[in-house]
Nucleic acid binder design. Sequence first.
DNA 1: GCATCGCGTTAGCCTTGTCTCATAGTGGCA
DNA 2: TGCCACTATGAGACAAGGCTAACGCGATGC
Lengths: 243, 243
Amino acid sequence: MRLSHLHFRSMCAVPLPHQRHSCCSRVHTGAVEDYLQAVFALTTEHGAATTSSLAELLGVAPPSVSAMLNRLAVDDLIARPAAHRVELTDHGRRHAVAVVRRHRLVEEFLLRALDVPWEDVHAEADALEHAVSARLLERIDTFLGHPTRDPHGDPIPPRHGHHDEGRPPPLSRARPGAQVLVERVSDRDSTALRHLGELGIRPGVVLDVVEQAPFGGPLWVELEGRRIPLGLQLTDLVFGGTA
Amino acid sequence: MRLSHLHFRSMCAVPLPHQRHSCCSRVHTGAVEDYLQAVFALTTEHGAATTSSLAELLGVAPPSVSAMLNRLAVDDLIARPAAHRVELTDHGRRHAVAVVRRHRLVEEFLLRALDVPWEDVHAEADALEHAVSARLLERIDTFLGHPTRDPHGDPIPPRHGHHDEGRPPPLSRARPGAQVLVERVSDRDSTALRHLGELGIRPGVVLDVVEQAPFGGPLWVELEGRRIPLGLQLTDLVFGGTA
DNA sequence: GCATCGCGTTAGCCTTGTCTCATAGTGGCA
DNA sequence: TGCCACTATGAGACAAGGCTAACGCGATGC
């Protein structure tokens, strides 16, 4: 077989990321997508992202964030309306939401199709999300029946149109006597997630808040007859409204 | 929610490739895996790989290949037993076979789980294969029931133990009168693959070789009563033994 | 009013992986 | 024997994405 008979460009093991959008001159690498996702997460959670919070979230040094933010600003993906403040532009938000959609659909797919444990889907999706083509993503979406929530209860942005990331308050804000419908559980800490899963605390369950122990003590909740003490590190990861 | 409560290292969108093996000091990036896979393919197909054949196959310039081969040689992944000759060491072959296993399992998964068209699975798998963890790969393998062939008929290396890549001769070598059981179809050219798929020429079918037209003309084969002319660019991509 | 501390940035460097351009070896053929 | 074509590599550059060390600067405390 002569090699020259083949269309090598079409087969070569391409190191380039997928071309996602025609609107951007520069191709978005995995790192760029990670930064956009992180800015999106921090701005929706805290109203704003900062260099240091991005560095901590992404596990890189602050100067690396500075350098990347400069590049993202040149590409009109982020804006810096004030010192110590990073925001997505409309353009950047569109790209970030697309990455979030990919991440959450992949998470849901891993759980439903391959039975990957609840606490592991996030890490696997973090690696896979940059390698999933638009074509493949729509197959996944169709396979799953166009889900609206990922395994942690996070809303999956629609392919087109507005996405509302709105999140109910954390369980740590709940007062004794309240009934809380768990809507979302943060996927950031896999060991905490595993623990919550073992306790049965997942999106959709209803918790009775029984008692807040004083001096930073646990929040006691009741679930299916069991009384469970939850420390602040857990109640900060669970979000829900009154049932 | 205070960020410092979380285990950031466990959640950060890791740009590093998965740590595959403890045996290597250097982590294998996607590019390294692509080169190993390419050397494996060329050595099994032609007995040896060369700088230029690797460059053509991978779609990069020859000096890029030279540089990478030096690095691979330092890591004892390849050997250069003679000029114009690149071979995998035992160590390099183990790694290459692991990459091939990942690629082919992902291909089979995409076809079976998501119904990705035959001619597209290769390109999608090329992007995904570097992002699939060992843990996820074994889930995929289990889900598929430990398949031994990918959608193109290529053998899937076992997790442990010997892998034999042996390939039957191409259809271009077949003589009129022969009955050929199609075993494998090269996945390199997606348009040719699509065409072959539309003709019904897939692993498992039996072709009657009718006539070889002279002067580089087509090979006429018969499949399910249809007489089909196949040019050299197609008959070089189909492999099988006498039925 | 001044020292300090936290935050962000600049400066300078490294690795990976690519490129182009120029050079060197090597084998075939007139 | 000499030339040509092919193959491989060296040299140098660049972009991406990291790092550390050092500096500037604003808020805060004394």
